[in-house]
Every structure is written in C-alpha cells, then in structure tokens.
C-alpha cells in the first residue's frame, strides 16, 4: 500500500476504489449506488439483483482488513430515493451490522436526499463534513480553496496496450482535490479527462491515479 501525501495527510488509495486514512482509521467511499440493479429491473432491464450485496460485502472486507473505526460515504449511497426500501434481507442485515460496528457517516448526494436513511440504517447524515483539515462533500466545487474530497463523477481511465483495451476506476488527484471513483458494484464511469471532471477540478495539474498491488500508477490528465 502506497500512501499519497495530500494536504499534510497520508491517504492510501486502495485498488477496490476506497480511500484509507490510517491516521483516523477511516475508510472513505463514494457512490455506492445501492439497489441500482432493482431500479433498472423496475424499468424493464433485469440486471442481477446482487449488486447491493456485492458492494456491502466488499466494503465489509475492507472494514475488517483495516480494522476501520470510521466509514464515510460521500453521497449517492442509494441509487434512488426508494432504493432503501428494496434492499434484500441479506443486504439489510449486513448494512445494519456495518453501521453498528463503525462510526458511520452518510454524506448526502444528488441521488439520495437521505433525510430518513440515518434513522433506518444507523449512522449520521451530513451534507458536508470537515475532518482533519479536509472537506468531505458529494460533488467537487471548482472554486473551493480548502482541500476537498468528493465523489459524484465516477472517474475511470481507459487505455490501450498490447492490442487490447483496459478500463479501470481511478482517483483524480490535484494538490487541492481528490475525486474518488465509484465504489458500487454496478456503477459505470466517466472518462477521467472528461470536461465535467476537468471543470470540477478547477485550475492546476491533475493526475489519474490507479492503485495496483505494488504501486500507485499516475497518469497526467491534460487540462
């Protein structure tokens, strides 16, 4: 695990798409999009009804592996307003267990105005949070001058090598901002260099970071 030095903090981008903050024993994740599959099923596309379970199981593995004390979800945790009602029994049990054994915070996003979520699933609900000198919110603000962590855009890097294409979730990092990739099992992505992401990052050089087992791969993004 290779740390990234950001605004005086050591943060570790994990291959799964989460950000691990050792100093606070905090896991940060963005865009779980729970119950995305069932939302599409209701509209006629029968995606596998296992996405929430997969997302939460992956998260539980990280919580256990790092003995995380805090979990911060940076918005769009449910795919839609009613998603919370559709969780399967197994996923419900897992989510309740996770919010009970960690200090869990739901940052609200554009997909999930979560007034009731905290009451139902535990954890607290915030629009933004400032911790350890870092600002946590769902969507980056280009004009923000404080160091900021956010989600929303689902950045992803596509590359071609040895005759085949590779597409991977990535972090978009500048010296003032980090945009996390989506953590949800069925969440797609937007090219890391896409104009909306570049606009949200504001001025200054940005890199796409892909964590692998050995090292952090860094790809400069043209502004």
């Amino acid at each position: 695990m290779v740390p990234l030095s950001f605004a005086g903090q050591d943060l570790i981008p994990l291959p799964d798409g989460a950000l691990w903050w050792p100093a606070r024993r905090a896991l940060l994740l963005a865009d779980l999009h729970l119950e995305k599959a069932s939302w599409f099923a209701a509209h006629g596309q029968m995606l596998p009804p296992y996405d929430s379970l997969k997302t939460l199981q992956d998260l539980a593995v990280l919580v256990d592996r790092h003995a995380a004390g805090e979990v911060w979800c940076l918005g769009d945790s449910f795919h839609d307003k009613a998603g919370s009602d559709r969780l399967s029994r197994d996923a419900r049990a897992l989510l309740l267990d996770l919010t009970a054994r960690t200090e869990w915070t739901w940052i609200t996003g554009n997909h999930d105005p979560m007034a009731t979520t905290g009451r139902v699933w535990g954890g607290r609900v915030m629009v933004e949070a400032g911790i350890g000198g870092l600002l946590l919110r769902h969507e980056a603000e280009a004009s923000e001058t404080r160091p900021e962590l956010s989600g929303h855009f689902h950045p992803k890097l596509r590359l071609r090598g040895r005759g085949r294409g590779v597409s991977r979730r990535c972090f978009v990092v500048s010296d003032r901002k980090i945009i996390l990739p989506a953590f949800g099992a069925l969440t797609g992505g937007l090219d890391a260099a896409a104009p909306p992401i570049m606009r949200a990052m504001g001025p200054g050089a940005a890199n796409a970071i892909i964590p692998t087992a050995e090292k952090l791969l860094s790809f400069p993004l043209a502004a």
């Binding site: 296992y50 069925l186 797609g188």
Partner: peptide, 14 residues
C-alpha cells in the same frame, strides 16, 4: 452500463 461489471457480479452470485 458496463456489462463487464454485470458479468463479474453474476459470476460470483449465480
């Protein structure tokens, strides 16, 4: 959406 992601989920759970 990415059919690769659907594939991975399906292969794991069904």
């Amino acid at each position: 959406f990415s059919t690769d992601l659907i594939y991975d989920v399906l292969r794991k759970y069904e």
